[in-house]
């Protein structure tokens, strides 16, 4: 239940909007729901609908329309490479293909350990620093600019270590 787990955050989010316009909070609440699993399931959508006084269908429409929300589970970390025109002119397509080849996946796929999904995305407003990508995880989004395949692989290695450490910690709880 989001309401129990994130009671304080939900209050803070709702306070941003006029009381009769709670629906505005749907996008921030969806980010909250996506924090743990990197996707939004039907139960979360129904709960958000309940909190906002709208229907689950209206919440699902938002999930479907906006590309940063996921309805199904992929990797814990989404490496999203901008391959739009300005980045492509600076070698972004080749960068992504080589990165995928090194990870033994195709663009849009997830690594065998279920951790890393590499996918092309549209312009991220960092055209002067291509090749670049963002890493989207439940914790948020971070930019990585002026990348090489090697620097990206080093980052991925770090993400894997972090995930392993976290798993270890969790298993001791």
């Amino acid at each position: 239940m989001l309401a129990e787990k994130y009671a304080q955050e939900i209050q803070t989010i709702l306070a941003k909007y006029p009381p009769d316009q709670r629906r505005s909070a749907v996008m921030p609440l969806l980010y909250l729901a996506q924090r743990d699993k990197m996707y939004v399931n039907r139960e979360d959508m129904a709960e958000i609908a309940e909190i906002l006084g709208i229907t689950p269908t209206e919440v699902a429409s938002i999930v479907g329309f906006y590309s940063l929300y996921y309805e199904e589970q992929k990797g814990k970390y989404h490496i999203q490479v901008c391959t739009d025109l300005p980045c492509a002119l600076r070698g972004a397509d080749r960068f992504m293909q080589e990165l995928c080849a090194r990870l033994n996946i195709r663009p849009g796929e997830t690594t065998a350990d279920g951790l890393i999904t590499v996918e092309p995305v549209m312009c991220l407003a960092a055209c002067d620093k291509a090749p670049m990508f963002q890493v989207q995880s439940g914790a948020g989004l971070s930019y990585y600019e002026n990348q090489t395949v090697e620097s990206a692989l080093a980052l991925i290695e770090q993400l894997r270590l972090d995930a392993a450490r976290k798993r270890g910690r969790d298993s001791h709880v």
């Binding site: 316009q21 909070a25 996008m27 921030p28 906002l52 709208i54 329309f65 906006y66 940063l68 312009c123």
Partner: peptide, 22 residues
């Protein structure tokens, strides 16, 4: 207020719709 990946929301009326949770 954060959007969620939609270029069209740069169009001002689409942005307002989005800000309204639509």
């Amino acid at each position: 207020h954060l959007g969620a990946g939609a270029y069209i929301c740069g169009e001002e009326t689409a942005l307002l719709e989005s800000l309204e949770g639509k």
